[in-house]
Amino acid sequence: MSPIELTIWQTIGAFFTIAIFSFLYKDNPLYKIAESIVVGVAAGYFTVLLFWTSLKPKFWDQIITHRDGVLVIDKWWYIIPGILGLLMYFHFSSKFAWISRYPLCLYIGIGSGIAIPLSLQTFVLRQVEATMLPVSLYPLEAQSINNLLIVLMVVAALIYFFFSMEHKGVVGKTATFGIWVIMVGFGASFGYTVMARVSLLIGRIQFLLVDWLHWVK
């Protein structure tokens, strides 16, 4: 990309950045134009990308291929998932919507079959395993204190969500400690969220001041 082309594209980018930020003052036509263009471009871009990266190579080119300069039907059975995909569009008909459930069943069945065991292993079993830590405070080290805290906090947070017993006495006090633990977690997450949002603002200002205007080196 030549420097002139780069400047033109950066100016377009700067215009849209300022147009979107103008919403902070109040809703206005400039913001609406920018928003509509973003939605339209994203939808068009994704449609074209999906066609060239999925539909053509994974469906069309598998069925019809060139052999010695002649078009031939190769893997005809790829038509079956193609038809199943088309059946999904019956969802838009109130009379024939039931037909769309068959491909959907297949899709959900395969998806669940892959996801359930792997998710259970990754986010439940491995996490439970990681919580089974030695809680002895002898010798007294930072790691042993950490281990004890992890075990206590996990148990307390779980007890807070245990509703088969009334939250009174020891159970009640542990559940209260559990709420505190959860609140600390929420606080940390919120802090990170603030940082993330500010980072996005800084990213745009960096683009305007450093890349576009070259005011800051």
Binding site: A115, S119, T122
Partner: peptide, 8 residues
């Protein structure tokens, strides 16, 4: 990536 690459 965690489930399908690392765990699998």
């Amino acid at each position: 990536w965690l489930t399908n690459a690392h765990e699998r």
